[in-house]
Design a protein around this nucleic acid. Structure first.
Lengths: 348, 348
DNA sequence: GGCTGGTGCGACAAGACATGCCGCAAGTAA
DNA sequence: TTACTTGCGGCATGTCTTGTCGCACCAGCC
């Protein structure tokens, strides 16, 4: 890449090699990595770069309690190279607002330097505070935002690293059924984030089956010495579709045929259910005919349920039946109080 | 910040001043901005920096068709200063997966250098492709992901910039009611992203009332010469709560009192509805009593509706009535076909 | 205890490099 | 045409970088 002695570029390479705080890197390792990238310099020069040049201009820290000194960046330092432009910054703010309800705070914390950077830019945009961007941008998420489960920061870091670098991990896991903590060795195979809970898919050491572990119930995670167990032919999509998450998801799409009222029609014209969808008027005033090719999954069914009486499903018949049955059960709930003699209606 | 003549640090400052491609910056302006930051250098030096130093090491472009040359970064170049660590990269991938269903592709495109960076890091992590991170991470969003409305890139950029820098904009807007395109001057006051549609809140030039404009129906947006109209005392939260978006949102929270079945209980134990929530067993096997302080909004009601017969609401009575009425209407939908003599049941 | 290897650091000299200045050329606006 | 702006090559100067050496410190290890 860079062959010759170009000081400033070497500085930049150097800065990219230094990790953020929880991590650190020692001088000899840095020298080696620099050499890999074509910068063959004396150890002394490297030392000078770090302690005289870079650390005066950047929030660098140095752990000099051990002899190969270890260098690291301040925990929250961030520097984008083409600096953020205004639209990107606004997008980041919007994205953060959305993600707040979806991911554990700790995971968002991983991205916080970026978000902070965006906010800082917007703040500086109008140093007089005129912009007040914070009062101008809101996201109203689609679903009800449940409060994401609490998650330990190191847990997330260890799991992410183990998953990607194919390592096994030692953990304590709080079993939901037995309510006891148990030490396990896990072989991570995947991560699924569902609603506001993040699950680790892993094999327990010594077993062949894949199990789900809610990340917020994992304690004291650490990379294990045990060698990682390969799971041949694992495909996460297949796994999810195999209803492992209660998503009775037929592998094929189905054609949804329904009547919808005007408000739903408007909604779907702007944000379609699927790329293959048609909406046409019916002879019933204020009602439209919807045809769409949609996945056969729980999500879609829930969405239909949430639309309530604004949607009337004709096909597939399984959904139609399910919606009808669900309505009957709900009604039974509320009738059994006011009309005690009707309490025999099935609500199982 | 940096007072003296420190070449490498000046380079870095320089790089931060150069925007990504659609934008560009001219040499004299750069010189001025550098001076603002304490770097008083000769124009010649700046020229040398750009054309000899930086452009050999960075993907810089130069428009030399006009005489004050203009410099810019490659469209997709990105360089994080403390380089991304593995957990952050994984988080970014997860965030992207979530946002895909929530924001228009163009808006996500704003962040794409970051996402691309994350993906590249993960790819390089296992040059042999062993990691296959893409097969290991999935997000299953809470709501049904509708397809976000198409949105023009420049529209987003112009609107974002105008909003933050307090400028008026010239646009062509496709009215939903009249289905005609109309040239307007808008005074942006806020942005609300709702479901998958992004709305601009703005006053039309010459009017005092605030209107909503779906961003994907805005064409040919451009910063206007017209001076921006201030809207005194505008508060976006108040505006949203004033049911402007159909969110009949009482300003006060309400106490939800309901019976829930085991699966919902588990869900809520891990991801609570609110920070003040209690779940206790009832004498009915498999059912639990839920009490929670929740906002009085449409979102929560929809969520309850989506839970179907797994939830039985006792209070507030308005919700209870609404759920019951909704179930009745749904049922009527489906009964009127199979039992024609029942078609008289109200479904308005 | 002494030896050794690894590391940090001050000093120094050689040489590379950055910088300001000048002059020239090309294009543009008055 | 004239004045102005901008880019660019060249050059002298002075600063800065860099490799080398010597010394100090620390931790094992024989």
């Amino acid at each position: 890449m860079a062959d010759a002695r170009d000081t400033s570029f070497r500085y930049l390479t150097l800065l990219q090699l230094i990790p953020r705080y929880p991590g650190s890197i020692s001088t000899p390792v840095l020298k080696e990595k620099l050499a890999e990238r074509g910068f063959h310099i004396d150890t002394r020069s490297l030392q000078r770069d770090l302690s005289e040049k870079l650390s005066t201009h950047f929030p660098l820290g140095c752990d000099d309690t051990q002899k190969p000194y270890r260098w690291y960046f301040d925990r929250d330092f961030q520097c984008q190279l083409p600096a953020l432009d205004v639209p990107s910054a606004l997008t980041l703010v919007l994205a953060e607002e959305y993600l707040k309800g979806l991911l554990p705070p700790v995971v968002i914390g991983q991205l916080s330097p970026q978000f902070t950077d965006a906010r800082r830019l917007l703040d500086e945009l109008s140093s007089n505070g005129l912009s007040q961007w914070a009062r101008k941008v809101r996201a109203i998420p689609n679903g009800k935002a449940l409060i994401p489960a609490e998650l330990d920061e190191t847990t997330w870091q260890v799991v992410a690293q183990a998953l990607l670098e194919q390592k096994a991990i030692d953990v304590n896991y709080l079993s939901r059924t037995t309510e006891t903590e148990k030490a396990l060795i896990l072989h991570p195979q995947g991560i699924v984030s569902r609603h506001s809970v993040t699950y680790l898919l892993a094999q327990v050491d010594g077993f062949d089956d894949l199990r789900q572990f809610a990340l917020h119930r994992v304690k004291n995670a650490a990379i294990s010495e045990t060698a990682w167990q390969v799971r041949a032919g694992f495909n996460i999509d297949t796994y999810i579709q195999s209803s492992a998450f209660g998503y009775r998801q037929g592998s094929k799409d189905v054609t949804l045929d329904a009547e919808i009222n005007r408000s739903v029609a408007w909604l779907l014209k702007e944000t379609p259910l699927s790329s293959e969808q048609s909406i046409s008027p019916t002879n019933k005033s204020g009602w439209y005919r919807l045809t769409a090719l949609v996945p056969d999954d729980q999500q879609t069914l829930w969405w239909l349920m949430g639309m309530g009486a604004n949607v009337k499903v004709h096909a597939p018949s399984t959904w139609r039946d399910e919606l009808k049955a669900s309505a009957e059960r709900v009604l039974a709930h509320y009738l059994e109080d006011s009309d005690p003699h009707l309490s025999g209606v099935n609500h199982g």
